[in-house]
Amino acid sequence: MFYDILVYGFIQSAALILMAFGFSLVYGVSRLPNFAHGAIYVFTGFIAWALFNTVGLPYWLSVLLSILASGGIGVLIYYVILRRVRGMEVSEVIATYAIGLVFLEGLRYAGFRGGTYTLPVASDGVSFIFDVPVDHQRVLLMILGFAMVALIWLLTKYTRMGRALKGMAQDERAAMMLGIDSDATAAVAVALGSMLAGVAALIIFPLGSLVVEEGYKVLIYAIAVCVVGGLGSWAGTVIAAFVLGYSQYMTVAYGKPHFQMVVMLLAIIATLIVRPSGFFGKQKQLEERV
C-alpha cells in the first residue's frame, strides 16, 4: 500500500506538472493569465483524434501536427485577443476564459461528448516499480513530465529565445530597452505554453477518454498548482505539483474520489487567503495585496 501511494502519487504529481507547466510558463514570462489553457488542452486531444481517425494519418504524424496546431492557436489567441487587452489583467482573464468557453462548448455542440472518443496508448506493456505494476503510458508520462521541465530549463538557459523569455519574466521594460520584442516574446510564450498543454493532453488522454469536462478540470488543476507554488514561479510549480499530487492521491486512496476537486479548490482559496504569493514563490507580497 505504501509503495502504491508512493508510485501513483508520483505519477499524479507528474501529470499535474504536465497540466500546469504551460500555464505557469505563460504567466511567468509575460504575466498573461491564459484561462484558455484547459480548452487548448482538450482541443489538441480532439485534433489528434480527428487527424488519426477521420483523416487517417499515422498516429505519430497526428500527434506532431496537433501539437503544432496548439502552438498556432496560442499565437492566434495572443495576436487577436491578448495583445489588445494586455495590461488590463481582468480583461485578459475574461477574454481568454471566454475564448476557452468557445472552444469547449463548441466541441460539445459538435457532438463530442461521453466516453466514446479515445486516443491510443503508446504501448500496452506493464513495468514494475517497487513491485507496483505501472503501465507504460504512465511510465512515459513520468519521463516526459520531467523531460519537459528539463527541456524548458535548458531552453531558457542556453538559447537566445529562452534568454529573452527569461529577461521578460524578470523585467519587461528593461528587456524591451535591450531590444527584445515584447510582443513576439509574449506570443512565443503563449505558443509554448499552449504546446505544453497539447503535449500534456496527448500523454494523459490515452489513460481515459476524451471529454469536454476535462478542459475545466485541467484549468482548475493548473491554477491550483500555480497558485500554491506561486504564480509565475517555475520551481514553485514543480514543488506544488508534488504536494497537491500526493494529497490528491491520498484522498482517492483513503476517501472518496469526490474530494479530489475539493482538495484543489480549497488549496487555491486557502493559499490566496493565507499567502497570495504562493508557498514557494519568491514574488513580493506587496504586489498582490497591501
Partner: peptide, 13 residues
C-alpha cells in the same frame, strides 16, 4: 478573508 486581494487574485479566488 479575500478582500485584501487585488486584481487577478481576487478574480481567481
Amino acid at each position: 478573508p479575500c478582500l485584501p486581494l487585488r486584481g487577478i487574485y481576487f478574480a481567481i479566488v
